[in-house]
Design a protein around this nucleic acid. Structure first.
Lengths: 194, 194, 194, 194
DNA sequence: CATGAATGAGCCTTCATTCAT
DNA sequence: AATGAATGAAGGCTCATTCAT
């Protein structure tokens, strides 16, 4: 007889459940418009109990973002490592970003991108290194791509343009719609390539 | 000697000053993290006075957004009217959007895009018609562009990709930096065109 | 061409119109739940203009009450003077009170009775003399009535019981209903008399 | 050693204490002239804590009224049930009303009667059924009383006249004065009876 | 006299956070 | 770990009142 049977609560570690619910809530209604009570309700505990797991509401936002940014960077690093050509690396860049924006971590990724300003200055500072590392990988690939004649736009500029185009898809692309993520990936590729 | 010299208040109609300050504040710190007292301070009045000009804080957000969306649509309509070719229309699309994102109405435009969820459901409904009209113009031009072979991506998809890329520039492009808006415009054009 | 034609406002002295509207409003929704803006709207002026005629909102309440209490006492005095018998005096007491509660000054009278606590301590003090004078007349008549065997209840008590019964009729008696004020008067008389 | 000794707080359930204080305050100074901070002070908590127990200030007024009206109706029903004669029923009517107006629930009863207009339309609607039930009992007794020749005034009219007389006593009758409630009851009876 | 923008105190309510149980 | 009452700062908004025009 596990504890979830006794308490009637859904299984899974509390921290995990809080983070998942927080990502969904923060994404849907914005960090500031969500109350800790709503979050606690969603998890099935009382608001006071949240503070046994996280020091503050800000801390929850930070944890959501940190987890996804660490994952995203690690996944990208691995994907780039196993990409034989620059063209494959380019595709890995886009694939990885879309995977996060529309995959299992979609909520957390959207929160990372669109609630960045809700994060405390301190939190931003602590996440900046990872963020920079991630974009450095983009930069390197795009620089190589231009030098190889695959694209003809300045890497700094194209990095931002592509990033903007990709993350915005969180707001319109429907995973259950007619178009698949692979097709979207292909469309982006065809815009980038000369 | 104008009245502002006599009263010691900054010139300009109060509503105008509120809207301008609101756009800057809402953009910089997010609608929910701004207080009406901050806004009033910025304008140089007391918080209560705000409510002589707007019924509520929500109303101010609505007014900021409505003004810019109306302007944006009207300006685009005019620009498209005087564009001789589809290529020129395509450029007008991008030029117009960048003009708003980085021109005098930069703050309000950023608010329109990134604080959309902060707007009340009712407010969203009342602005939707304009928003749709604006995007319909994009759709039409992009459809024509593809049928003429200028691009080869589905209009719905390319509209969203380009929109995402352009509005994201609000977060990184520096008007006072080395790159001009015209150059940015050119970079985007070159990514779109086959 | 009078000024009301020019300004489009209803005729009559401003003070009068304010007092009439105030009585109706205060009675209907309570002094505290009425705003000076509502009152000004009703009169057809702006809220600021109210303060050319009265020093404060409290002052308006005071004026409404003072006018009616002065009238009520004067009318009662006259009626008692011309009442040949104690029985007639008794009837005058009731008639006069009902005349005010349901006649042209119904609103002001209801305000006097039911908004007494909304009046400032200072205002209450300034009206107390009149209030006392009015009730003294009741007391005298009721004392005489008992000594003559018309009633058999202590004058202090009966004065309050009758007063309560009469003023409460403001809350239920319908001037346009089947029962006339005269019939109501008769019903009260029959309850009082032995 | 009970918990109140340990926490330093006054004993009694919070809701109860709030309701009691609210009745006293609302009665003394009127619902609109009382602030939630005053009420919280009186109870010995902070204003925010009020809203753990009641959704709104309106809700508190409603709760005060609901409790007393339910009690009042139940007590009257019981009293009428055990009254052997119509004469006794008549006395029960008056006794019950005076018991509430001057007994332990005096404040709440006064609030019910004199702050009815401060209650939201919705609140009024939700209390109307009880109010009507209570008055229906009066009506029935008074109808019977007239048919038996105990009184000779129309039941609808006498119900309102007596009700007015009785509730008004909240404003003048002094429980600690020379006259007892029983004597007051007797005085009212003698006015009603033929 | 009237206007109406501005005032500023104060109101009800919300909400992240604490803590004794 | 969880509870839930209490906290207390802050938030959006109201409103009687003032005053330059």
């Amino acid at each position: 007889m596990d504890s979830s049977a006794k308490t009637g609560k859904r299984p899974g570690k509390a921290k995990r459940r809080i983070l998942t619910a927080a990502a969904r809530l923060f994404r849907g209604r914005g960090f500031d418009r969500c109350t800790v009570r709503e979050l606690a309700d969603e998890v099935g505990i009382l608001s006071g109990s949240l503070f046994h797991h996280f020091r503050s509401k800000d801390d929850i936002l930070f944890a959501v973002m940190e987890e996804v940014i660490v994952d995203m960077d690690a996944t990208l690093a691995a994907a780039l490592d196993s990409a034989p050509t620059t063209h494959d690396e380019l595709r890995a860049l886009i694939h990885n970003q879309l995977e996060f924006i529309h995959g299992p971590q979609a909520d957390a990724t959207a929160v990372l991108v669109y609630e960045w300003n809700a994060l405390s200055p301190d939190g931003q500072a602590r996440l900046l290194a990872r963020r920079n590392a991630y974009f450095r990988r983009w930069q390197e690939v795009l620089t190589k791509a231009r030098s190889e004649g695959l694209t003809n736009v300045d890497p700094v500029v194209s990095r931002q343009l592509i990033h903007g185009a990709l993350v915005w898809s969180a707001n319109w692309f429907d995973t259950n719609g007619a178009m698949t993520v692979e097709e979207l990936e292909q469309a982006v590729m065809s815009m980038i390539l000369v």
